[in-house]
Design a protein around this nucleic acid. Structure first.
Lengths: 342, 342
DNA sequence: GCTGGCACTCTGGGCGGAGGAGTGCCAGCC
DNA sequence: GGCTGGCACTCCTCCGCCCAGAGTGCCAGC
């Protein structure tokens, strides 16, 4: 733990907040004024210099003011008060919009993403609850014309995956019906993430050992269940980032947007978020190289027995307090909305 | 129809293609050289001046070369040869990637979007086939625990929409089963887009007149079917546009990205694309104000009896030939892939 | 430990001039 | 009539320059 005296703490906070506000380096005089420190700029300067030695601040060139380093932001963030109130009008707006029971689950995710982006002025990333942690509900094989069937997996919380599969000749609708029931019966209540290939083999074997076309159902089930269905991901408000001075150079912006289009990387990052609390990644701490100029403020939410994640992505020079408040509250509201509806 | 003599046609083509290549205004000498016209620059100048009077060209300031106007691009595009070959290696790659029968329909759409963007270096927009033009296949009401059911609509081509609905007390699984069958039986084969609210009322009335919870099923059916389910839309490669000089100013870029996040506007634009052929919107022709600096190259594709749309979005200073070739071929491949698999 | 003073450094903006690209027009030629 | 070379003109862009300003580090003194 970094130990800083009161003055240095105030200075760190002041430098961070002023830099975040103006995107400019903060000079000693300005910092003294803003921090309401009644000492001379020269004194401030020596304090700033010591914090620079600690690696919390830098300056871009000899005669410029100070800007925080990633470590500086980290210490600042860790100093932040845990709870921060949100205006009650904002709370209501969010609750109302997310709580609408007429909405599809997919729409809720979209809404949440758009709201987060709108509230903070940064980009947001929202991952819908994945199937992994859900309970298997039922499998339905529905005949579709000639030699085709629609296979639908439903989990007990209402998520669906569907696919049409080809059948060999001579499969009667009753066969399908029978197989559906058998599989449903045997898998019901298993956690989707727990299904192994063996288990599947076994279940299908028991259910019905004389159909060759089982192979196709099996392959498909396997792909859809155990192999980890990518959670649906939604990015919103990326455009806000273009307004930030750190992304005014086209190739920085390009790299950023490349990263945002790389869904699997995003999924990976979000998967690492702990179940409780707001998690923050600052600059260099970010595993994704393309996002080293960014910070992420993330939180998981719960939808029944499923888990989803939301995040805000902005420059390291980010309004962390606001972001944390927004993320925390939206995550809570989302959990609530998911509990009451689907 | 704009009538241009051979020289002017060559000049228009040269100016457009050179400007597209370099993003710079094209001078008379350069144009003469590139167009292999064996006349002096002075002659070229007078021809260029006349085309400026026709509104096909402008120059940004007195001593600069010519750049095409939107009308200039339009005439250029209309002069383009209809068919343009695509290298056979590229064809194969596309076919292989889209044709993989193991893929989910949603993935095919994603792949198509990514490929279009990659091939052209612009952004792509792909709309998955909507339900409107599909045939109703079946409705399944699946009991989910206590007072909850999962309602799944399937069309005959395998598309799904699912939602969980709340049930009043006293609904037995058999009721659900019965209702599912009744509704399926009555609606099967209807075009989804043709279902009216009345028709729905009537069918539900016939199917079962004593359940109050029908209201909920009905509302949901109506929302999902007749009210036009927004087709799933996918934008890819938006980052490429950041590299284009016309979007290097952050606020232009911002406006562009705003437009790209406005899904309903995109859906609207794509809906207007005719069933056959490649459709092009250039700059001012674009109904969407935010996209006046862009051109769109679009084509519909068929997936059984459904219709989807693909588009490339780039600056007006766009490689139209390449874009047209890519869009045409991907649309064809997509139609093929959809025919053979789902 | 704090302060004012001072020399130093580096950036960013404004200015002016040179260079160059390209135009329009015109008189002459085929 | 269409094409040409010549010419004057316009306007942008780049470059070097300088200066003001902001902010620093250090030091001697309280």
């Amino acid at each position: 733990m970094m130990k800083l005296d009161a003055r240095r703490r105030i200075l760190l906070r002041t430098v961070v907040e002023e830099h975040v506000r103006t995107a400019e380096p903060v000079g000693s005089e300005h910092a003294a004024l803003r921090g309401r420190l009644r000492v001379s700029p020269a004194t401030i300067r020596s304090a700033l210099a010591s914090m620079e030695e600690l690696g919390l601040l830098t300056h871009p060139h000899t005669s410029a003011g100070r800007i925080p380093t990633d470590r500086g932001y980290r210490v600042y963030v860790d100093m932040l008060p845990k709870a921060d109130p949100l205006s009650s009008s904002a709370r209501q707006k969010i609750r109302r919009r997310l709580g609408d029971p007429a909405e599809e689950p997919g729409d809720v995710v979209n809404d949440a993403a758009r709201m987060l982006a709108g509230m903070t002025g940064y980009a947001s990333v929202v991952a819908a609850p994945g199937l992994q942690e859900q309970m298997f509900g039922s499998l339905h094989l529905v005949p579709l014309g000639e030699q085709r069937a629609l296979a639908v997996i439903a989990t007990d919380s209402g998520a669906l995956q569907g696919h049409s599969i080809e059948l060999p000749e001579g499969v009667a609708p009753d066969d399908l019906e029978h197989l559906s029931r058998a599989i449903t019966h045997r898998l019901q209540g298993s956690r989707v993430g727990d299904l192994t290939h063996q288990r599947l083999e076994q279940v299908l074997g028991e259910a019905c050992h004389h159909h060759r076309w089982l192979e196709e159902v099996k392959a498909w089930l396997w792909r859809n269940l155990a192999q980890g269905i990518r959670p649906q991901i939604r990015v919103a408000g990326a455009r806000h980032l273009l307004a930030e001075p750190e992304f005014k150079s086209p190739d920085r912006a390009t790299r950023l947007f490349e990263a945002l289009e790389d869904e699997s990387a995003l999924v990976g990052m979000l998967a690492a978020v702990p179940d409780e609390g707001v998690w923050i990644l600052i600059g260099e701490e970010n595993p994704h190289e393309q996002l080293r100029a960014c910070s992420l403020v993330m939180s998981a939410y719960r939808a029944g027995d499923r888990r989803g994640t939301i995040a805000i992505l902005g420059p390291t020079r980010m309004r962390y307090r606001r972001a944390v408040t927004a993320v925390r509250f939206v995550a809570e509201s989302l959990s609530e909305a998911m509990r009451s509806s689907a």
